[in-house]
């Protein structure tokens, strides 16, 4: 499989390093979301990075899972299991893209809802929604997801 070796080269040099960093950022953001959720339910204090990270248990779980998958992928790589590594990468990036798409859909939905109900639309709030952690990181994940999916479909049935 000469061809797949070439493909893998691109994979290690481009995707793995970005992904490790991305995985760490997702993990940190996920932890902060848990802390914010705790702060939110107990009223113990102000949110950390409140503009970017919500206090939501669900989204923290999603971000921690993404982070874990990306780190797992690096682990598989060093254990010389490149195919498994690629699978973990693709799924991690896929979940990241799904979380981003969902956030964007929710923003569009609340914008449409404002129009339907006839309430003044808080544009600033909507725009801030695009800057939420899972959205921001998702934009980075999108092209990487495309590349890793392409590689994955080339080497599997």
């Amino acid at each position: 499989m000469e061809n797949s070796k070439g493909i893998f080269k691109r994979y290690i040099y481009v995707i793995i390093p970005i992904e490790v960093v991305l995985g760490l950022v997702y993990s940190v953001a996920g932890f902060i979301a848990i802390i914010n959720w705790y702060l939110g339910t107990t009223g113990a204090g102000e949110f950390l990075y409140s503009d970017y990270i919500p206090g939501d248990l669900g989204i923290s779980l999603v971000m921690l899972s993404i982070g874990f998958l990306m780190i797992l992928s690096a682990y598989y790589w060093f254990k010389r299991k490149p195919v498994k590594s690629l699978a973990a990468t693709t799924l991690g990036l896929g979940l990241a893209v799904a979380a981003m798409v969902m956030q964007v859909l929710v923003i569009i939905a609340s914008w449409l809802d404002g129009i339907i109900v006839g309430e003044p639309i808080a544009y600033e709030e909507l725009v801030m929604g695009f800057l939420r952690a899972e959205a921001l990181l998702g934009y980075i994940a999108l092209p990487l997801f495309y590349i890793s999916l392409r590689i994955l479909s080339k080497i599997t049935t």
């Binding site: 998958l69 195919v83 498994k84 699978a87 799924l91 994955l152 479909s153 080497i155 599997t156 049935t157």
Partner: peptide
């Protein structure tokens, strides 16, 4: 047959 996609995805 190459690597099975299903098996690979299941492993994760």
């Amino acid at each position: 047959p190459r690597v099975s996609m299903t098996d690979l995805l299941d492993s994760v």
